[in-house]
């Protein structure tokens, strides 16, 4: 009997404590999510913080502790960004629902993967259990300037459909690395053979033109696309197109016709750089 009287109060205390914890978290979350400080403001606070609190307040963490903690977190973050090549430039989240162990947050994330900008929106459902937290991505929305990165559009839509966020980052990294590699390769040949190598769309375009400097000289076009399939596997696809004046064509018809096939086998045998290098030499030599 007596125990049950206590029980009523103890139960209420427990439920109140839980309610208070939830409310406090909700308040903290919204406070965090609805505020924004610029880097300058943070730097200013960082500076004044240390002088302001000197010799004051023993109970709280000392300013140097807080500063050291922040610095160590920032070191971790910048290491990860450098290592992975994924640079987050802005991130915001908003708690949509929070009940007991279930949390739904809406995230907005933008950044660059190597040189490619991306923007993401998704919902993250987290369910906490005693041992672990399970996370599920829903409503994934990927925004990329797909006009510029034509190879990725199919992959982006399959990513959105399945909520494949983790493989998305992997494939985007590998795509971006190829993209960077292509730029470097084009730059290398343009610098080395400025008379022969032309870049009609600049370094970021997906083709180069090799033109014999002589007026009647023929032209080869190397198209280098980076293909990402639905599973996110990235492969470079190179093709050779020929544009040959008639008199040259008459002499070497078979050689020219076979050129694309030869180029493809050369790619397999020697790799991209050597294959292009060889072509440039051929174009330069002619006539």
């Amino acid at each position: 009997m007596e125990n049950s009287i206590y029980q009523v109060y103890e139960d209420e205390i427990q439920s109140l404590e839980e309610e208070i914890k939830m409310l406090a978290e909700k308040y903290e979350d919204s406070q965090q999510e609805s505020t924004f400080f610029s880097d300058e403001e943070i730097l200013m606070s960082m500076k004044s913080f240390q002088t302001e609190f000197q010799g004051e307040l023993k109970g709280q963490e000392s300013p140097s502790d807080l500063k050291a903690q922040l610095e160590s977190l920032e070191a971790d973050l910048s290491f990860l960004m450098k290592f992975t090549g994924i640079w987050f430039t802005s991130h915001s989240k908003k708690t949509v629902e929070k009940t007991g162990s279930r949390t739904i947050q809406k995230h907005r994330l933008s950044g660059n993967c190597h040189s490619l900008p991306f923007q993401l929106e998704f919902q993250l459902l987290e369910i906490k259990s005693k041992e672990s937290v399970s996370a599920v991505i829903t409503d994934l929305n990927v925004i990329m300037e797909s006009g510029e990165y034509s190879g990725v559009s199919k992959f982006v839509s399959s990513t959105e459909e399945h909520g494949n966020l983790l493989p998305f980052f992997k494939s985007l990294s590998s795509y971006a690395e190829w993209y960077e590699h292509r730029r470097c390769t084009f730059l290398h040949f343009k610098t080395r053979y400025p008379d022969i190598v032309k870049l009609p769309e600049g370094l970021l375009g997906d083709y180069i033109v090799l033109r014999n400097p002589e007026p009647s000289g023929f032209e080869l076009m190397i198209v280098w696309k980076i293909h990402v399939d639905e599973d996110g596997r990235t492969t470079p696809v190179l093709d050779l197109l020929t544009k040959v004046p008639e008199q040259v064509l008459e002499q070497n018809i078979t050689t020219i016709e076979n050129a694309p096939t030869c180029f493809r086998s050369m790619l397999l045998l020697f790799g991209i750089e050597t294959a292009i290098e060889n072509l440039i030499k051929v174009v330069g030599l002619k006539k």
């Binding site: 943070i42 807080l66 500063k67 922040l70 977190l73 920032e74 987050f88 989240k93 991505i137 966020l165």
Partner: peptide
């Protein structure tokens, strides 16, 4: 201000888990 910054860096570090 510093605590806010710390929380946002922490949140960004957590997002790396998703990558």
């Amino acid at each position: 201000v510093l605590e806010w910054k710390m929380k946002s860096v922490q949140a960004m570090l957590q997002v790396f888990y998703l990558t």
